[in-house]
């Protein structure tokens, strides 16, 4: 649990973070989003005291961060950054084992933990353990970066645009991976990004920052439906907001139970998003889809009327 209480950061006369209050609950993935220079990275870095806050208080599980010794605090918090910050003179194995070694774990336990993490992040031990960071692709390096951040099993993870430098395909696969990891590990994560799609995909709580202040925070759907002002609206994609919301809702939310006879030929999986369903309709020129379960067995129907959320009675098909 992380709490920021009226936190302000000044660099000389410039106010970088202005009276920010934020509470991130245990197991919550909180995404700070905003244009560059809005203070989101500064906010993140104040939590592990890479930057000291000027005013206000930051609490970690109820204890002010200033009461910790810097190193002790940071070893309790995982930290991953855009450029990975991997040590170029250390092998992958040594890089991942860094924090456990700082915590003086016995060598055998460090090695076990590294093996465990590499398996968790789909990095083959035999192939990658002895490699140097310069021999890795961007995506592999970032996986190692995340593994290193998770090494000492911290409850809290700070991630500063970790996927910002990757190509779109690698970025998406790592976002999926993070979502998968989070579903298993339930870490408390503060994640900074300027990529709104990434933010919407990952966030349990979305925090929009502008000029050092928090403009709006809440669940992504809340923000999409009721943006606080024009800035949030434009950041959320303006006219595209409908599609972005559709991308967050599963088909199962709008489908109707299976009628006496199935009329739709085209199919969509129940876990697919409404956006994907809409895309299939556009592509196939149909207004109805059969919703199928994991075994490809029809369990319901989705009509265009239902998809767009129109209320009222369904007129049966022709």
């Amino acid at each position: 649990m992380i709490e920021l209480i009226h936190v302000t950061k000044r660099f000389g006369d410039v106010v970088a973070v202005d009276d920010v209050s934020l509470s991130v609950g245990k197991g919550e993935l909180c995404v700070l989003v905003g244009t560059s220079g809005c203070g989101k990275s500064t906010t993140l870095r104040m939590i592990n005291r890479l930057i000291e806050h000027s005013d206000g208080e930051i609490h970690l599980d109820g204890q002010p961060v200033r009461e910790f010794r810097e190193e002790v605090l940071r070893r309790r918090i995982g930290y991953a950054i855009q450029s990975t910050g991997l040590f170029p003179h250390w092998t992958v194995e040594r890089n991942i084992g860094l924090v456990p070694r700082l915590l003086k774990w016995p060598a055998s336990r460090v090695r076990e933990r590294v093996e465990e993490l590499m398996a968790l992040l789909d990095l083959s031990m035999g192939e990658f353990a002895g490699k140097y960071p310069s021999q890795l692709s961007g995506g592999q390096a970032q996986r190692v970066g995340v593994a290193r951040a998770l090494a000492a099993d911290p409850e809290i993870l700070l991630m500063d645009e970790p996927f910002g430098a990757l190509d779109p395909i690698t970025r998406e696969s790592l976002q999926d991976e993070l979502a998968r990891l989070q579903a298993r590990l339930h870490k408390t994560i503060v994640f900074v990004t300027h990529d709104m799609d990434e933010a919407l995909r990952l966030a349990d709580r979305l925090v929009v920052m502008h000029q050092g202040r928090i403009v709006q925070q809440g669940h992504p759907i809340e923000l999409l439906r009721e943006p606080a002002d024009e800035f949030v609206e434009s950041l959320l994609g303006g006219e595209d907001r409908g599609l972005k919301e559709a991308a967050l809702l599963p088909v199962s939310e709008r489908m109707t139970p299976l009628g006496p006879r199935l009329v739709a030929k085209e199919r969509v999986a129940q876990h697919a998003t409404l956006r994907e369903a809409l895309s299939i309709m556009l592509w196939r020129h149909v207004e109805r889809l059969a919703v199928v379960d994991d075994d490809d067995i029809p369990i319901g129907e989705l009509s265009l009327r239902r998809l767009v959320g129109a209320r009222g009675h369904e007129s049966p098909g022709p």
Binding site: G85, L86, P88
Partner: peptide, 27 residues
């Protein structure tokens, strides 16, 4: 030495001396 590497080293919880001896000097 790449400032991001130093930032990561500090962020991981290395002390000043450790950052210098284990990261900055060897690099």
């Amino acid at each position: 030495v790449d400032p991001d590497v130093i930032d990561a080293a500090r962020g991981m919880g290395m002390s000043r001396g450790q950052v210098f001896r284990q990261v900055r000097l060897p690099l």
